[in-house]
């Protein structure tokens, strides 16, 4: 279990580092745009000069023969935006303990900027579920991880602004083990009281999350984030006769989809700058 968790952490960190490194070595935009565009204009001028003018349109030809000024394109605007790693904790999981006292969750989130709009995001967490009443006793614990991307829709007022309004998609994976040390099935009509236990069982689950939310820089490099997400189960190896009460990271064990919300507090480590090149040409209007 611990080995799987450590393996997941190392793979996720490696992926994030890869994203970050790749983001820094972004290829520069081709510098010869201006030459490439001016060439055809010169060529056409030469071609026109080479063609002998006919009598009837000699005036027009003379007009055309005049050298046209070369169409120059403005060079791309190149600037740098801050890039870095944002690491945080989902504090809504602690509030959840008040509503669902049988579950204890800890969730860590991290995201790194890949380019101007795209962020790679991972999330890792732990869940422990413990419930006991007159009918049964349940114990379970497990780990989960999600990995995905967030797309930032916010039009920035300043290139250094790090606030986000995002939508994203994640793939989630959880491994959970659970058991019922004792249960009772009472039938009032038949006057029966059956007791039993369910042995420790392990299960894995895979799901997809669609999420959206905001991240706001409340203090310098200190962020507050709010988000909602819909989780859709892809597959679960849980036994139909005994599904877990809680699947770590997903939620209720007997549901195929689950709505959830997050409230994160995170710190941003400014590690690198990302080169962004944008065309300064006015966008063509559609006819």
């Amino acid at each position: 279990m611990i080995r799987t968790f450590l393996y997941t952490i190392s793979v996720s960190l490696a992926l994030l580092s890869a994203f970050s490194l790749q983001a820094q070595v972004k290829p520069a935009s081709p510098a010869g745009d201006t030459i490439r565009l001016t060439k055809p204009a010169q060529d056409s001028t030469l071609r026109r000069q080479a063609t002998p003018p006919r009598k009837q349109d000699s005036i027009a030809a003379r007009k055309q023969a005049r050298p046209t000024p070369p169409v120059t394109r403005l060079p791309d605007s190149v600037y740098y935006v801050p890039g870095g790693l944002r690491v945080g904790v989902d504090i809504s999981r602690f509030a959840l303990l008040y509503f669902q006292p049988y579950r204890t969750d800890v969730t860590f989130q991290a995201d790194a900027r890949i380019n101007k709009k795209l962020y790679g995001a991972i999330e890792m967490g732990y869940n422990r579920t413990s419930h006991s009443d007159t009918s049964y006793t349940y114990k379970g614990n497990g780990m989960y991880a999600t990995i995905g991307v967030d797309y930032d829709f916010l039009k920035k007022r300043d290139k250094d602004e790090k606030n986000m309004v995002f939508a994203g998609i994640r793939y989630g994976f959880a491994r959970n083990s659970y058991e019922v040390p004792n249960y009772r099935i009472i039938s009032d009509y038949w006057g029966s009281d059956i007791t039993g236990s369910y042995p420790k069982t392990s299960m894995t689950a895979h799901w997809i999350e669609l999420c959206m939310g905001i991240r706001v820089e409340a203090l310098k490099n200190f962020f507050l984030g709010w988000g909602i997400r819909e989780k859709i189960m892809l597959s679960s190896s849980a036994d139909d006769a005994f599904p877990p009460i809680v699947i770590p990271g997903f939620g209720s064990g007997n549901k195929r989809s689950q709505f959830d919300m997050t409230y994160t507090v995170s710190y941003y480590f400014p590690l690198y700058k990302l080169k962004v090149s944008e065309s300064r040409e006015p966008r063509k209007k559609k006819d």
Binding site: Y102, H131, D133, S135, Y136, Y138, V180, Y183, R184, I185, S187, I194, G196, Y198, A241, F242, P243, I245, N254
Partner: peptide, 15 residues
């Protein structure tokens, strides 16, 4: 007969 976990609120039942 087979014991079955119905839900967190209902507990176990024989199916």
């Amino acid at each position: 007969r087979k014991p079955n976990f119905v839900s967190a609120g209902c507990g176990f039942a024989t199916f």
